[in-house]
Every structure is written in C-alpha cells, then in structure tokens.
Amino acid sequence: MPSELNNKIATKLQEMAELLRQQGANPFRIRAYQRAAQTLAAMNRSVQEILQLQGSKGLIALPHIGQGIATAIAEMVQTGHWVQLERLRGNLDPVQLFQTVPGVGQELAERIYRALHIDSLEALETAAYDGRLQQVKGIGQRRLAGLRASLASMLGRTRSLPQSGRAGGPDVDLILEIDRRYLESAVAGELPRIAPKRFNPDQQAWLPILHTEQAGWHFTALYSNSALAHQLHKTRDWVVIYFYDDHHQEGQQTVVTETHGPLTGRRVVRGRETACSAYYAAHRADA
C-alpha cells in the first residue's frame, strides 16, 4: 500500500503537470511529471525511507525519476515545500523557505534574498559554492560550511558540489532572446497570468508567465515579484528566467535594464555583465 507521503508528493507532481498544461508548457515536461506521479502512487516503499538509506541515487533508480525530479522529491520530504510548484501557483515565499535551512533565521534569510535575488534551495546551494553567499553579511567560513552540509542533506545530494546536466547554463545571447520574447509577449497581452500571493492584496492575476523551449533548454520567465523590485518600481522591468535541462534540473538568471556604465539602457543578465558587453560589441560589429 503506498505511503501517505508518497501520495502527497504524487498529488503535487500531478498538480505541477496540470499547471504546466494550463500555462502552455512543453508536453514533454508535462508528461515527465505525470509519469513520476504514477511511479510514486504505485509504490509500496516510502520515498523518505529510500532517501534516508540511499540518497538521491535511490530515487533516480526508480522508473521515470530523473535527477531534477529526485531533487524536487527530496526538497518536499525535507522541507515540506516545492519551490517550482509554489512559484507556478504564485505563492512562493523565499524568505520563509530559506528559514527551513538549519542556522538561517528570518533576518539572515531576508539578507540573502535581498542580496542574491534567488528563490530556491538549489540556487542557494549554488551560491554557497560560487562565492556569492560569502558576500552576504553574517556568513563567514564556519557558517558557510554548515550551510553547504545542510543543503546537501536537504537536497539528497550524493555529492556536495551542485551539478548540472549541462555545465554553465544557456549562453547570454539565448537568455537575452528569451527575455526579449517574454517582454514583447507580456506587453502584447499574449501570455497567461498568475495571481501571486505576495505583494498582491487584491489577488489580481497580473503576473505574465512564459514557458518555452529553445536550443534544447526549457525556459520559464516571469517579472520579478520581489520586495526590492516593488520598492524600486522594477516589477515591469526585472525578468527572472528559469531554465531546465532534460533532467529537470533548474538554474536561474535575472535580466534588468542597466542604469549605469557603458551598458546603460541595455538589457543585461545580472552577474554576467562581461559576457553581455561582448555580446553587444559583437552585434555592433555585425551591424
């Protein structure tokens, strides 16, 4: 008889598939979540037990469970949250999510979110290794080591360093193309909209969402609904682009209109300004 936890997670996987269908996502992604839900609903063994004894490798060994979905299952088991689903529902609260990590209180969670503009444990783990998290006030080497260990445990990692099916993610030119498509489609009113729970007291469905596939990547793009974006009146400028490989592992980038320096007025991928400069220089040379 399937465990109660398996059924709860299978229900969330089915909900993800339905939301993706409603929002016009690629049928491949929809079917992947449906198949994973069917696998869990038919199992007699608890995914929690598998995760405890075998880690993510045990989950990946199950039918129709790839690395990304295994990470999502581990996240649900360990935290009770699934960021990707909450994002598509419109009720994601990154500050609350980060507080599920041992050693992260509300104040530190808020500082992390304000400084890094990330909203998932996957992205937090990446930041713990690429140097960005160390720049947040209150995170020294000892705390950083503890956060790395906690995140590895929570995400069911078999290795501590975050891995990606395709190292580095999409090129800057592709991210900027998705940004252009999103902005044009959003302004034209061509995209489905969701009603975010945060900073939306009237619960209006104002936030356009784009699902698309290009160059072998699956993309989801939305305007930023962060506190800082609202404070700076950038909710119709900052675009957060999430990208997924064929194993449903996620990365994210934020694209903004630059306000200073040689790229002023240009759309820039935050954190990849040097690559953006090269991109625009190449396009000037081709013109």
Rank of each mutant, 00 (worst) to 15 (best):
S46Y: 04
D119W: 05
A186E: 01
L40Y: 07
G265H: 03
S120I: 10
Q38K: 14
A145R: 09
L5T: 11
S160E: 14
A109Y: 07
R143M: 06
L59N: 09
A152V: 10
G165N: 00
I241Y: 10
W206T: 13
S185Y: 00
K8P: 08
E86T: 07
R157Q: 11
Q78T: 14
N225K: 10
A227M: 05
N91P: 00
N91M: 05
A229K: 11
R157G: 15
E75W: 06
R272L: 06
I139M: 01
I65Q: 03
G131Y: 11
D173H: 10
A74I: 08
R181K: 01
Q163G: 12
N26I: 02
L5W: 02
G66A: 08
N6H: 03
P262W: 00
A281Y: 05
H64M: 03
V95Q: 12
S224N: 13
N7K: 10
V255H: 02
T100R: 09
F243D: 12
Q231L: 09
V187F: 05
E122M: 09
Q214F: 08
A127Y: 04
A281M: 01
T254F: 08
V256R: 12
L53D: 15
W206P: 10
S56I: 11
I73P: 05
A205R: 01
A195T: 05
E250W: 04
L59E: 12
T235P: 04
A167K: 03
G68K: 10
V256P: 00
T264R: 11
G169D: 02
P2Y: 06
E250H: 05
Q204P: 00
T126R: 14
L124W: 00
Y242Q: 14
E213D: 06
A109K: 03
A72L: 13
E190M: 03
Y129P: 02
A186P: 00
Y129C: 05
A167H: 09
V172D: 01
S153P: 06
D93Q: 11
K137D: 15
E213K: 01
V101Y: 01
Q253K: 10
I73W: 08
D245T: 02
M76T: 11
R266M: 04
Q96M: 08
L53V: 13
L51V: 09
P102D: 12
G216D: 07
T100A: 15
R89M: 07
H211S: 08
I194P: 04
S46K: 04
T264H: 04
E273V: 07
G216R: 00
L174S: 00
R180H: 07
G146F: 00
S224W: 04
P27I: 08
P27M: 10
H230A: 00
L20G: 06
A152M: 11
P201K: 05
Q253F: 09
K197Y: 10
Q78S: 14
S46N: 14
S120Y: 09
I69D: 12
Y33H: 15
A25H: 04
P102N: 13
R198V: 07
E110L: 05
L207T: 02
H248I: 04
L59F: 14
V187K: 15
R31L: 06
H248A: 13
S3A: 13
Q249Y: 12
L108C: 01
T158L: 02
I139P: 02
R166D: 02
V255T: 07
R198L: 15
V256T: 15
Q99L: 08
A10E: 01
E15N: 08
Y129D: 04
H64Y: 12
A115G: 09
R111H: 10
